[in-house]
Design a protein around this nucleic acid. Structure first.
Length: 969
RNA sequence: GCCCGGAUGGUGGAAUUGGUAGACACGCAGGACUUAAAAUCCUGUUCCCGUUGAGGGAGUGCGGGUUCGAUUCCCGCUCCGGGCACCA
């Protein structure tokens, strides 16, 4: 049949031929059969390590937000591979965690079972998207073969201390040797609290005493810390789970309770963690967050002697200059000296206050600063410089774990101290005259000292230095560097985590297990509820706890960040039974070149991983001091949340839903928002979102408890299948509320990538996720726009087809214009991938495809290069085209196209010409025109003449190859 | 409360180093093809005034500033998102 020339039918054939479902399935199988993505540790090529933050496999499965970062990193990994690198691009699962345990408590399903099911589901979903992961290196943190090494690293931390002089971790044995020889003399160690000890005293200690002394130095050690304890739930809660002093789940009272817990001495590494931030290619924001988290401050440690006691209160201040204004002291309510200090007269009031503070979460205590709370202990301390007596108060705004848990309060120069003093009528002495700085705030470090004895007349900066000298001279304190960073609490009273490889002997002395006995596997349990008295569920497994004669096992488990602090190293040599990774593997892969993940891990995971890595570096186990060279943060993909207003009170026993247009100014008073499945809502996500009569019927089928409810809108009232009209209009138009928020089961707005892939194909899904916007940015998901990308892919496919829809490319030489289209595209893709701007890559491909279609180009020399260029983005389609072009191997082993600038050289350039910065004309001038020529030519233009007529030309700015601006007055 | 981000047409976004604001898409409107629909192609689409295809004004959350020129830099706000140490 002869087909006459008209596009539509011809195109129809072309598009019919592109069947993503068949193509994608075929090539995915081919890749598996050919080990296309298997990576060797033995290669002549330069290495490149692209890593994603591994997911926690939740029961809800992946939604379209999860793969965003994975797609970006996959594109980058594939790009690097095409550029000739040996690319490590692995994936695994952060598989220990609370949700699985919670689920187990509710349903009795063992966390291992549900976790494995979830992992299987994740794997299916991931496979569906066509990632280039080397699955032979998969890790699961809950796998004993994996957590064996988590336990091993913990033991290494346990067996080391930090030498501040050498600035590195050293074996405990060397510390013991030092103590035996010299006691604490000459010892510069990171420690919980300063102790001094003679060699003799050390030698005379009992095993138990030695153990607790060493705990003062170990990098993994035990100490008492405060936790949010919920008696009713029998467990410790995260700050997140505590709302207004009660548990979010159940509303039970929560109190701050001291507990003996394992901690990691991350503070020993504070300075190094801070300093090496400079060497990282992370966003400034991310570095700043880390640096703020570490919170280095220089100042003075000062001791305030307590009147009538032998002890002193140690404080740290960054403003020693203001010491003459220190009119009172505030201790954290948990401070060790509180009990001792409190006078009998104040006892009752102090106890009442302590009771109140117990119910306050740390978050509340930091957030509620408007209203100061506190109580007087009845005791006084001596200000060591003024020798005045100052009252000692307790206040919840001072936190036990920050600094020394005590402050000297200077109401004149500290906002919170001022609020406190004002409320309780404590004396305020102005010590800085700020009259030269009218804009300065209370806490600004400027002005001249007054009322400050020997400091009077000095500028603040000099006064700080002078006070430091004076403090040291008088022996009442010393210069000190303080960090906000706290040691990481490492114990969890949970089941689903790594068991500690620790056993206690009859004296309660902690012993690390022998490495050959690792992994210490989690015992099986039928009941995952916490054991009584704040004990971990593991305490129920008595056979396990008392398995070794004379010893009891630690029953707490490790926290979520344990397994995730080193997983990137395991990928280098997954499955190695001899070591966490072989020396050769670690030396070859070195570190992660590109790490992609969410900002929500800004301080937690990223800080802990860096700390562990530095420790392993000290041990010579890894060759680099930092694990993640470059970091890219992906934004969250949000969903549209649609809800209807339902009146809180029922009407004649029926629920009443009311149009958002009818609820008045303060809808929250009388109405609650009931989330509606977004699929039911017309025009969802817009101001016009509404439910018509059909939508309401669907809603009632979905939520049968509302089948007799009243639905009222401006048009009328709908109930039990009948619509009573208020006007002439028939049918409901009930407005819903549209918000942007988390994609979550509870809002019925989750979009499963499988559904999108099924409909449009994985290549389309991948490119659409990228096309949505910059990877780093949060953005709402909307499937509506996906047609544009789908159309693009079919158009691209169409370039390879003749008018009959047969595959046909021409071997004729490409024209200059065609080369220009190609090389414009190569340049853009190369540059944009390098700066992680994947959304603009997609538009670059669209532009090239549109241009080539217009040029009716089907030249092999052009299209073949474009196929390789597109391969990282659309791996399946390009693989099909590559083979159709006659190649044998995979397109993913081809070479990435090189950019040749010669094709983009222009003879002339279009210059915008502005008058006073406003564009008035556009004109082509030769590319090599001089500044003077450009100025002259611009002024002569007709369009410009009318603007400068009768005016003075004050200045002409010519930026060659850019623009011309004429300033007239 | 503290720390870190973000805000550009009806929508997602582009503008890489201070130099043509709105690339590329979605949506919408009109047209071609079709018995019709789908699909596809073409044209238009920041807003306002004006209009023959003239021309002009405003404009990147709000208010100031620096500059020949500001989405971009500085100061002050508003709103939204993330983190704040046991969610992962």
């Amino acid at each position: 049949m002869q087909i006459h020339y008209f596009r539509p039918f011809e195109k129809l054939l072309a598009y019919m031929d592109y069947r993503p479902r068949d193509i994608e399935k075929k090539w995915r199988q081919y890749w598996v059969e050919n080990d296309t993505y298997k990576v060797s540790n033995d290669s002549d090529k330069p290495k490149f390590y692209v890593l994603d933050m591994f997911p926690y496999p939740s029961g809800a499965g992946l939604h379209v937000g999860h793969p965003l970062g994975y797609i970006a990193s996959d594109i980058f990994a594939r790009y690097k591979r095409l550029c000739g690198y040996n690319v490590l691009h692995p994936m695994g699962y952060d598989a220990f965690g609370l949700p699985a345990e919670q689920y187990a408590i509710q349903t009795g399903v063992h966390p291992a079972v549900s976790t494995n099911e979830n992992i299987a589901r994740y794997r299916e979903q991931l496979d569906n998207i066509g990632f280039s992961f080397d699955w032979s290196r998969e890790v699961k943190t809950c796998d004993p073969e994996y957590y064996k090494w988590t336990q091993w690293i913990f033991l290494e931390l346990f067996e080391h201390w930090y030498d501040n002089a050498q600035q590195k971790a050293r074996p405990i044995k060397e510390l013991v040797a030092h103590l035996e020889a010299n006691g604490t003399e000459g010892l510069e160690a990171a420690q919980s609290e300063p102790i001094s000890l003679s060699a003799k005293a050390w030698k005379e200690m009992s095993a138990k005493e030695k153990d607790s002394t060493l705990m003062n130095y170990r990098l993994a050690y035990r100490k008492t810390t405060f936790v949010n304890w919920c008696e009713e739930l029998g467990t410790v809660l995260a700050n997140d789970e505590v709302k207004d002093g009660v548990s979010e789940r159940g509303g039970f009272p929560v109190e701050r309770k001291p507990m003996l817990q394992w901690s990691l001495r991350i503070t020993a590494y504070a300075e190094r963690l801070l300093r090496s931030l400079d060497t990282l290619e992370w966003s400034e924001a991310m570095k700043k967050m880390q640096s703020n988290w570490i919170g280095r401050s220089e100042g003075a440690q000062v001791f305030f002697p307590i009147q009538g006691h032998n002890e002193s209160i140690e404080i740290f201040t960054t403003r020693p200059d203001t010491i003459f204004g220190a009119t009172f002291m505030v201790l954290a309510p948990e401070h060790d000296l509180v009990d001792e200090l409190t006078t009998p007269e104040q006892r009752a009031e102090v106890d009442k206050y302590l009771e109140y503070v117990k119910s306050r979460s740390e978050r509340d205590r930091m957030a509620d600063v408007k209203e100061a709370t506190g109580v007087f202990t009845g005791a006084y301390a001596t200000n060591p410089l003024t020798e005045q007596l100052v009252p000692i108060w307790l206040g919840e705004y001072v936190l036990k774990d920050y600094g020394t848990g005590a402050i000297m309060a200077v109401p004149s120069d500290d906002e919170r101290d001022h609020r406190f003093a004002t409320k309780f009528g404590i004396e305020i002495i102005d010590v800085i005259d700020k009259s030269d700085y009218p804009d300065a705030g209370r806490e600004d470090k400027v002005g001249k000292m007054i009322n400050s004895g020997f400091l009077n007349g000095m500028e603040v900066k000099d006064a700080i230095e002078k006070t430091l000298q004076e403090v040291e001279k008088r022996g009442i304190g010393s210069r000190q560097v303080n960090y906000r960073l706290r040691d990481a609490i490492y114990s969890r009273q949970r089941y689903w985590g790594e068991p500690f490889p620790i056993m206690y002997d009859a004296d309660g002395v902690a012993h690390g297990m022998d490495v050959k006995d690792l992994p210490l596997e989690l015992p099986d349990l039928a009941d995952f509820k916490p054991a009584s008295g704040g004990k971990s569920p593991l305490a129920r497994a008595e056979d396990w706890v008392y398995a070794v004669d004379g010893y009891t096992r630690e029953t707490d488990t490790m926290p979520g960040f344990a397994g995730s602090s080193w997983y990137f190293l395991r990928y280098m040599d997954a499955g190695n039974p001899e070591a966490f990774a072989s020396r050769e593997a670690v030396n070859y892969w070195q570190d992660v070149d590109l790490y992609v993940g969410g900002t929500e891990h800004a301080v937690g995971h990223l800080m802990y991983s860096r700390f562990w890595h530095k420790f392993l570096f000290d041990k010579g186990l890894v060759p680099t001091d930092e694990p993640f060279r470059k970091l890219i943060n992906q934004g969250m993909i949000q969903g549209v949340i649609e809800s209807m207003y339902m009146q809180k009170e029922k009407v004649n026993g029926y629920n009443r839903f009311v149009c958002a247009g009818l609820v008045g100014e303060e809808p929250d008073k009388d109405f609650v928002k009931i989330p509606v499945h977004v699929d039911f809502v017309q025009d969802y996500g817009s101001n016009a979102s509404h439910m018509d009569t059909e939508s309401i019927k669907k809603f009632m089928d979905w939520r049968p408890e509302f089948q007799h409810a009243i639905f009222e809108c401006g048009n009328g009232i709908y109930q039990d299948g009948t619509f009573k009209s208020k006007k002439e209009v028939d049918g409901s138009h009930l407005m819903t509320v549209s918000e942007v928020g988390k994609m979550s089961k509870r809002y019925f707005n989750v979009v499963n990538p499988d559904d999108v892939v099924e409909r449009y194909g994985a290549d389309c899904f991948r490119m659409y996720e990228m096309f949505l916007g910059p990877v780093e940015q949060a953005k709402p998901w909307d499937t509506k726009g996906i047609d544009g990308v789908s159309k693009f892919l079919r158009k691209f496919w169409g370039l390879f087809l003749d008018q009959e829809g047969n595959f046909h490319v021409s071997d004729a030489e490409a024209t200059k214009d065609e080369q220009k289209i190609l090389h414009t595209c190569i340049k853009k893709i190369r540059e944009d991938i390098e700066r992680f701007s994947f959304n603009t890559c997609v538009s670059g491909f669209m532009v090239a495809t549109n241009d080539l279609q217009k040029a009716r180009c089907n030249k092999r020399s052009i299209l073949e290069q474009l196929v390789v260029l597109l391969a990282p983005f659309a791996p399946h389609m390009t693989e099909e085209l590559w083979h159709k072009l006659g190649h044998e191997g995979s397109v993913h082993d081809a070479a990435f196209p090189e950019f040749e600038p010669k094709w983009l050289i222009e003879d002339s350039i279009a210059y915008p010409i502005s008058i006073n910065g406003k564009k008035r004309a556009l004109a082509e001038f030769p590319a090599d025109a001089s500044k003077d020529d450009l100025e002259k030519a611009a002024l002569e233009l007709e369009d410009i003449q009318k603007w400068i007529e009768g005016k003075t030309i004050r200045k002409v700015i010519v930026v060659p190859k850019r623009m011309i601006n004429i300033v007239v007055g």
